[in-house]
Design a protein around this nucleic acid. Structure first.
Lengths: 156, 156
DNA sequence: TATTGTTATACTCTATAACTATA
DNA sequence: TATAGTTATAGAGTATAACAATA
């Protein structure tokens, strides 16, 4: 005996004040995209963060942890358990640098590169499903706008 | 005697594989915008989530908690502590419904409406600073695209 | 039986302070 | 003294299962 409050229909609740905010729409979109990505990465036993780290390590062999942290914009301590996990699973290895024995070089293993290949394909399929062609001029404009906003938000 | 790895300069790390993903750019932008928003809301002792809840309760007096949860796309249990906090601070009150004594009507108090007014102004200033004019046709197109992507990600 | 709000719990992401070993 | 990686810890968002009161 309820009304039609099914699925994503929020009934008569007015959320215009929030929906006119670009930031709120970014948040809602990110949450939905992230949930779908989690589903796509689950079969590989990866999360968005472990996936991102693996990608950067494969694309930049011998990367140092601090450089990885900078590239991902996360604090160094948060990366430790991520790297621990990838290493424990045999996807990467830490190798002490002879030139600076404080630092590690992060090196992908063969299984790491193989998982990378499969996961990248799955993530690309997920992306084109949600966003359409990734080289579409409209999509490129959207990404350019997002990056401008990111820079403006950071410079404060 | 390090190179120019200052600030947000990530050195020679290649993150093209990630940066070509729309979802990754959304995540990075959201994180930066969210950090700035947190700074803007801190003087009001609000976070993005408590702000969003307060806005919906002021804009929809007598809202039920379950409808608020639907509108915000969060699970009902997560809303309880949010509502607890707003009520404890005297910004809203829970009022039992005579028609359905399981449910509460969430009602903003005068201090709640006053805080809403001030916080909304601050958030609008933050938004225009980062995103530019909110009624700019380009911004409206961006928001429309984000909402399309949100819907596509949800329907899976 | 089903729903509203609640409790308990868990996982993830993010951040800071302080430690170690090297430099 | 400064840096790389680490440990410990905390705050916040999100999710599920199970419960009491009510429908």
């Amino acid at each position: 005996m309820q009304d039609a409050s099914q699925d994503d229909f929020t009934g008569e609740v007015s959320d215009e004040t929030l929906r006119q905010l670009v930031g709120y729409n970014i948040k809602r979109t990110f949450n939905a995209v992230q949930a779908d990505l989690a589903r796509v990465l689950a079969p590989f036993d990866l999360r968005m963060m472990t996936y991102s780290a693996l990608v950067l390590i494969v694309d930049n062999p011998s990367l140092r942890q601090s450089h990885l942290a900078d590239a991902l914009a996360v604090e160094r301590p948060n990366l430790v358990i991520i790297i621990d996990e990838l290493e424990r699973r045999g996807l990467i290895s830490r190798e002490r640098l002879a030139s600076d024995r404080r630092a590690y070089a992060l090196v992908p293993t063969l299984p790491g590169r193989q998982l990378y290949e499969k996961a990248v394909r799955a993530v690309c399929a997920h992306e084109t499903h949600i966003f359409g062609a990734l080289d579409d001029p409209e999509t490129l404009k959207l990404v350019a706008a997002l990056r401008r906003f990111e820079q403006r938000a950071r410079r404060r």
